[in-house]
Each structure stands twice: as structure tokens, then as C-alpha cells.
């Protein structure tokens, strides 16, 4: 009896309930957008954007501006600069991201060292702080989440076509650059609203883990698209709950929970897949090499 009460205890605190809710929502949102991040090979962009946002957040804190305004504008400017540098072609997009976002991150670190004592919120952006969540954060995550679901559902076929086969999609009348822009906006907005919950250093893992785990579990794009947010929500919720008992920052536990599930699925699916591929050999036709 005492045990059951103990398990329920964290729920008696409002800040924990808020934290659990936002961690679950953030996990689901990152899971949804993560499908496109993984399938389009955008994980480095996600990684870069979160670092760029950190610079903007630090600047906003020092100047006493709103976080969303400062980090949002800074992230947007970084995105445009990356596009500009990468278009020169001499410098690859990955290198452009490396230069611009790392510079932005360094600026954030410098500001933190100089003004860190007074500006604790900079620290929260770096490592994530679920328990310091405000209603504003909760609304922001919920808002971006609803927007993402609406966009992904209504543009489903175009997004799938443009992601799987951009060349033919373009010929078939899909506005491919438009779809890419839509996904960049959703990714930026997702990072902006979840980075204070998960932390700059861990957000890219939450964008990738649910999606790759879902990918191992299904061969269908449609199924991956709902499986990944469900897994993200579970990682977020369970990680948050465990962190209460482990007394470890929630972001870290969320990522560790996701990694553990990934490893279990990877191992289990690996065994099953090998069986299936071996079974196919009986039918004769060879599998094409990648």
C-alpha cells in the first residue's frame, strides 16, 4: 500500500504534472517531425539549428528579450545564412552548418560565462529543465504540435512524394521546394519550443530516436508516421517519471530511455529480419543491392 502511494507521490506536485505533460508532448512532436528528419537526412540540420537557437536564447536573456523572439529570430537568421553559404557550392551545406551554428553556440557560451550567474535560463536551454516549465512553454509545444499534425495530415501525399522521390514528384506537379520549406519551418518551430524542455545538447537525439525505432518496426511510411510520435511520447513520459526517482536531469533520462528501447528493438528485429531475408531466398528472385 505504501509502495503504491509512493509511485503516485510525484503526481501530487503541480510542477511534476506540468513537466510530465510537456515531456510527453515534446516527445510526440519530436517523434512526428523526426520521421522527416531521419528520412531526409536532416539530423545534422536539427543538431545545428538547436545550437544556433542557444546563441539566440543567450542573447535574448542578456538583453531581457522574450526567449521565443530572440531565439526564433536568431534561428531564422542562421537558417538563411546556412542556405546562402551552402548555395556557393564550394562549401558544402554540412560545413556551412558547422561554421554558422557552432559560432552561434560559442557566442552563447561566452555570454553564459560572462552573465551566467544572473541568467539561469541560459543554463536551462543548454541542458533542459522540465521542472521549470511555464504555462507559456506548454502552450507553445501544444500549438506547434497541433500545427504539425494538421500540416502533415493535409499535405501527407505531397510530403511523402517529395521526400521519397523529389525528382518525379516535381515532374508530377508537387511543389518540392515548397514542401522542403514547410518541413524546415516545422523543424525550426519544433526545436524552438522543445529545446528548453530537453536541452540543446540532447534535442537532436529526441528527433532521431523515436523515428529510427519506428523505422525498425515498420516498412510502411503511413505506419511509421503514427508509431514514431507514440514512441516519442512514451520516451518523454517514462523518462520524465524515472528522472523523478533517479534524481537525474529529465532530458538525460528521456534520451537514455529511448536509447534502451532502440537497442532492444534493434536486437529483436535484427534476429527476425535475418530470418525473413533467408526465407526469401527460397523464392528465387534476388534482392537488389542498395
Amino acid at each position: 500500500m505504501i509502495f503504491a502511494v509512493d509511485l503516485w507521490k510525484p503526481f501530487t506536485y503541480e510542477f511534476f504534472r506540468n513537466g510530465l505533460l510537456i515531456a510527453t508532448l515534446a516527445g510526440a512532436l519530436c517523434g512526428l517531425i523526426g520521421v522527416f528528419v531521419v528520412l531526409r537526412g536532416m539530423s545534422y540540420i536539427g543538431h545545428g539549428l538547436s545550437h544556433a537557437v542557444f546563441g539566440g536564447a543567450a542573447l535574448a536573456a542578456v538583453l531581457n528579450l522574450s526567449y521565443f523572439l530572440g531565439a526564433g529570430l536568431w534561428g531564422l537568421a542562421s537558417g538563411l545564412m546556412i542556405g546562402r553559404v551552402a548555395r556557393k557550392r564550394i562549401i558544402g551545406a554540412d560545413a556551412a552548418i558547422g561554421v554558422i551554428t557552432t559560432a552561434s553556440f560559442a557566442m552563447g557560451l561566452a555570454l553564459q560565462a560572462r552573465f551566467g550567474q544572473a541568467k539561469q535560463s541560459i543554463d536551462a536551454v543548454l541542458f533542459g529543465n522540465v521542472l521549470g516549465v511555464f504555462t507559456g512553454d506548454l502552450l507553445a509545444v501544444a500549438g506547434v504540435g497541433i500545427l504539425s499534425v494538421v500540416v502533415v495530415v493535409t499535405l501527407y501525399r505531397k510530403l511523402l512524394f517529395a521526400t521519397f522521390d523529389p525528382e518525379v514528384a516535381g515532374v508530377s506537379g508537387v511543389n518540392v521546394p515548397g514542401m522542403e520549406a514547410v518541413l524546415m519551418v516545422l523543424l525550426s518551430a519544433t526545436i524552438l519550443v522543445t529545446v528548453r524542455v530537453i536541452g540543446v545538447l540532447l534535442i537532436s537525439a529526441l528527433l532521431v530516436l523515436p523515428a529510427v525505432t519506428a523505422r525498425l518496426l515498420t516498412n510502411s511510411f503511413g505506419r511509421m508516421l503514427w508509431l514514431s510520435p507514440v514512441l516519442g511520447a512514451i520516451f518523454g513520459g517514462v523518462g520524465m517519471y524515472v528522472s523523478w526517482y533517479a534524481d537525474v536531469p529529465s532530458g538525460a533520462v528521456i534520451i537514455l530511455a529511448g536509447t534502451l528501447v532502440f537497442i532492444v528493438v534493434y536486437t529483436a528485429v535484427g534476429v527476425r529480419r535475418r530470418g525473413r531475408v533467408a526465407g526469401m531466398d527460397h523464392h528465387g528472385p534476388s534482392l537488389r543491392a542498395a
Partner: peptide, 11 residues
Amino acid sequence: FPVTVGEVVGM
């Protein structure tokens, strides 16, 4: 890419 025969034709 995680896509089935039906999904390819339907997209």
C-alpha cells in the same frame, strides 16, 4: 525508404 507497393502507387 519505408514505403510499401501500395504507398508508392498511391503517392
